[in-house]
Computed example of a mutant assay.
Amino acid sequence: MTIAQERIERLASLAREAAAECHDDRARDYVRLARRLAERNRLSLPTEFKRFTCDACDVYLRPGKNARVRLQDGHVVVTCDCGEQARYPYE
């Protein structure tokens, strides 16, 4: 595991903790740093991190607080407060 991958995972856990403590601006900064680090080093973000962050506003999503989760015909629809929707398949 490279240093960049370790740092991305650490930033993901920091974003999760900050969001749980209602420090949304701090969590957004951690998400932006992790995305930038992944782009710079040509790495992919962990799946869990991608699913719990909004692509449009970089906020860490907390279902029931700032995100709505619905099931529709074989996929999960996650809607952020900004209006952005993400769809993920399930079986």
Rank of each mutant, 00 (worst) to 15 (best):
I3M: 02
R7Y: 00
R10I: 01
L11F: 10
S13R: 13
L14D: 12
R16Y: 05
E17L: 12
A18N: 11
A19R: 01
A19E: 01
A19K: 01
A19Q: 02
A20Q: 12
A20D: 15
A20R: 11
C22H: 07
A27S: 14
A27C: 10
R28P: 06
D29K: 13
D29Y: 02
Y30M: 03
Y30C: 04
V31W: 00
R32L: 12
R32Y: 06
L33V: 15
A34D: 11
R35K: 10
A38K: 09
A38L: 08
A38T: 12
E39W: 08
R40C: 14
N41H: 13
L45D: 11
L45K: 13
P46N: 09
E48R: 10
E48M: 08
F49H: 11
F49S: 06
F49D: 06
K50D: 05
K50E: 09
R51H: 14
R51F: 06
F52W: 10
F52G: 04
T53C: 04
T53K: 02
T53L: 04
C54I: 03
D55P: 05
A56V: 05
A56R: 07
A56Y: 00
C57V: 15
V59Y: 00
R62M: 08
K65Q: 11
K65E: 13
N66T: 03
N66A: 14
A67H: 04
A67P: 09
A67F: 07
R68P: 10
V69C: 12
V69E: 12
Q72K: 15
D73G: 14
G74F: 00
H75D: 13
V76P: 04
V76R: 15
V76C: 14
V78F: 07
T79N: 14
C80A: 05
C80V: 05
C80D: 04
D81S: 08
G83K: 12
E84F: 03
E84D: 11
A86H: 00
A86V: 06
A86W: 00
A86D: 07
Y90H: 09
